[in-house]
């Protein structure tokens, strides 16, 4: 029988039908592995319910504001890049695939394979955040902030940064600022990984190196996103004045629709869209970060060979959480990026 990993930690022979098999992963207050698994499963589903309701408030605000001010949403969505959003969608979908695959691997007790799939999932999460950082920083450069700070002026192009690291790399200062913390983490994880390696603590070393690889994913996303961003901008600049005129024309039409009180100084409150945008994507990004932490923990447990066919709950549960993060993005993408 048994697709059980025989590791140093799992000594006892595993019997499916033995309900008194109090292996070390069965908490003292549960009678059977199945009861423990069912409890965890229901727990995580219920937790997902709370997450859905948590986000529902934002969707409610979104629907309300869009319903009453569709013109704001149309005007504002021009600042969002469908390609970057689309790439991020695919990245998240791919991470969902690897996550689901990791669950399968854990279910079959293939810890090593599961750990690799989880590492890919972690990297995808970081790539997603890297692309997001490019998107955010690009908006900040254009003075596109939440409603009260929204100060975008039509046709405004920020000067290319000339000083410091930003000038040297030819990217904006805001992006550099967003990269500081990931860079520190990358270096920190690398150092920790090496230290544990020297101390011959294999599992910890593997964990920290995996986390360093994950942070590398962030820079992969950021660099890729920035290259695309630069290309898109130069294409727009070469595309020239035509596009600009069209945009200006559209704006004039909107002004006519909104009514005569709209003075040029007080255009429709486009910043409102970005309030919603930043809150929704920001909260989603926090969930991605939370997922990265949970995935790192799973990675560690996989390298310690903790999972086996009657005990894979943690992978399954984190997987469900990760799929929910994906689900939310599946809705956020069309609602924020695809507005005509």
């Amino acid at each position: 029988m048994s697709s059980v990993d025989t590791t140093a930690e799992v000594h006892d022979e595993h019997h499916d039908d033995d309900h008194h098999d109090h292996g070390e992963f069965i908490a003292h207050h549960f009678d059977t592995p199945e009861q423990q698994y069912d409890s965890g499963k229901l727990g995580i589903w219920v937790f997902l319910v709370t997450e859905v309701l948590f986000f529902s408030g934002l969707f409610c605000a979104y629907v309300l504001l869009r319903y009453h001010q569709p013109e704001v949403f149309v005007a504002a969505s021009e600042h969002l890049d469908k390609v970057l959003g689309g790439i991020n969608t695919i990245v998240l979908l791919f991470s969902s695939l690897t996550m689901a695959w990791a669950v399968r691997a854990a279910q079959l007790g293939q810890n090593r394979f599961a750990s690799r799939l989880i590492l890919i999932t972690m990297v995808c999460a970081a790539v997603f955040l890297g692309v997001k950082a490019v998107e955010y920083s690009h908006k900040w450069d254009l003075n596109i902030y939440v409603a009260s700070h929204y100060n975008y002026i039509e046709g405004y192009h920020p000067d290319a940064p000339s000083e410091g690291l930003a000038g040297a790399l030819g990217v904006s200062q805001s992006l550099i600022n967003l990269c500081v913390l990931p860079a520190i983490l990358l270096v920190g994880f690398l150092v920790a990984g090496v230290i544990y390696r020297v101390r011959e603590s294999q599992a910890m070393s593997a964990l920290y190196l995996a986390m360093a690889v994950m942070m590398g994913g962030f820079f992969l996303g950021a660099v890729g996103g920035q290259i695309y961003q630069n290309a898109a901008e130069s294409a727009a600049a070469h595309g020239g004045d035509h596009g600009h005129d069209a945009a200006a024309g559209e704006h004039a039409e909107e002004a006519a629709v909104t009514g005569p009180d709209t003075t040029s100084k007080y255009p429709p409150p486009i910043g409102m869209f970005f309030s919603i945008y930043y809150i929704m994507t920001g909260l989603h990004a926090f969930h991605v970060i939370g997922g990265m932490v949970a995935l790192s923990w799973l990675y560690y447990r996989c390298t310690r060979n903790h999972f086996r066919p009657d005990y894979y709950g943690p992978v399954d549960f984190v997987g469900l959480y990760w799929h929910l993060v994906d689900l939310i993005w599946i809705y956020l993408f069309p609602l924020l990026y695809l507005i005509n």
């Binding site: 025989t6 069912d38 079959l108 394979f113």
Partner: peptide
């Protein structure tokens, strides 16, 4: 490592798995 022995397709029978374990 011995995992790949177990990486059989899930169309195969998983009679040895606990009943709550359904690999896709």
């Amino acid at each position: 490592m011995n995992e790949h022995e177990h990486a059989h397709d899930s169309h195969g029978d998983h009679g040895d798995l606990p009943r709550y374990n359904h690999p896709v």
